[in-house]
Computed example of a mutant assay.
Amino acid sequence: MKGLVLDLWKHLLALVYPNFCLLCEETLDYSNDKALCPHCESAHPHLREDLCELCGKPLADPFDSRCFDCGKRPHFYEEGRSIWVYEGLVKQSIYDYKYKKRKEYGLLFAKELIRYYNETIRWEVDMVLPIPLHKHRLRERGFNQTELMVKHFAKSFDLQMGGKKVLWRNKPTEPQKTLSDKGRWDNMQDAFFASKAHVEGKTILLIDDIYTTGSTMDACAKVLKIQGAKAVYCLSIAIGRGM
């Protein structure tokens, strides 16, 4: 049944959305499940090996099991993974998606999330949640870029998608990119709330666009665990390099 739902969803998306390479915008065939042309796929392969066992950052030393950040403090989530390193054309595409309102990128990023999840990850989850934006940031940006991706992702796997009644941001926060590592963690404290009725006993997948130190994912995972979530996993488009 899930396979049929996935095939129907892919066919519908192909009819509604243009199909082009996420990174260079070369036109792609509609039957292509990938969001990258062969050249960009070769130049930007998915992260699969020599990764931090917790957050999924690529490690400078393949004999290490954890990156520097994960060695400093524990996480509230079980495991995290990302598709690419946050640099080059990947970084530019995320910027254009978020700040130039390239909403059509939502489907393209979702296609790569779906492909990566299918090929690399074996988590069994009950619900998928986007990292929420505060209402002020949502009004300023006009849309939640992560929520748009998660809608496509959840439908493709026939998964329950939680919304603002499940996990929400109740405190306006500073942009994480402007802060130090400690500042990022402090900035996220008490920023999120979760509904016990919706998450208790469930295994939850959190999705975001960028993972840097993990402060945002951890803050969300913490409140989900407090409200009784059984386990929390994290998936993002791009991640910083580990040390």
Rank of each mutant, 00 (worst) to 15 (best):
M1D: 07
M1H: 09
K2W: 12
G3Q: 09
G3D: 12
L4G: 10
D7Q: 10
D7N: 10
D7G: 03
W9I: 09
H11V: 11
H11C: 13
L12W: 06
L12N: 10
L13F: 00
L15Q: 02
L15H: 02
V16H: 03
Y17S: 01
Y17T: 02
F20L: 06
L22R: 15
L22D: 14
L23K: 08
C24K: 05
C24P: 08
Y30G: 00
S31D: 01
L36A: 10
H39V: 00
H39C: 01
C40H: 01
E41W: 14
A43H: 05
A43D: 05
H44D: 01
R48L: 12
R48F: 09
R48G: 11
C52S: 04
G56A: 07
P58C: 04
P58V: 01
L59R: 11
D61C: 03
P62D: 11
D64W: 01
S65D: 09
C67G: 06
F68T: 15
F68S: 14
F68M: 12
C70L: 12
P74W: 03
H75E: 14
V85L: 07
L89A: 06
K91A: 11
K91V: 00
Y97W: 13
Y99A: 14
K101I: 12
K101M: 09
G106E: 08
L108R: 03
F109I: 15
K111M: 08
K111P: 06
K111H: 11
Y116A: 02
W123P: 05
E124D: 07
V125P: 14
V125C: 10
V125D: 13
D126M: 14
V128S: 08
P132Q: 02
L133G: 05
L138P: 11
R141V: 00
R141L: 04
G142S: 07
F143W: 04
Q145C: 05
Q145N: 07
M149P: 05
V150E: 06
K151M: 04
H152I: 07
A154H: 03
A154C: 05
F157V: 02
D158G: 08
L159D: 06
Q160M: 12
M161T: 08
M161V: 12
G162L: 06
K165H: 12
V166S: 13
L167W: 15
N170H: 11
K171G: 01
K171L: 00
E174F: 00
Q176K: 01
T178M: 08
T178W: 09
L179R: 00
L179T: 01
S180H: 10
G183N: 04
M188P: 11
M188H: 10
A191V: 06
A191R: 13
F193E: 15
E200K: 01
G201Q: 11
K202H: 04
K202G: 05
I207Q: 12
D209M: 06
S215L: 00
S215K: 02
T216I: 15
A219Q: 14
A219R: 04
A221I: 03
V223Q: 08
K225L: 14
G228S: 02
Y233L: 00
A238R: 06
I239N: 12
R241M: 13
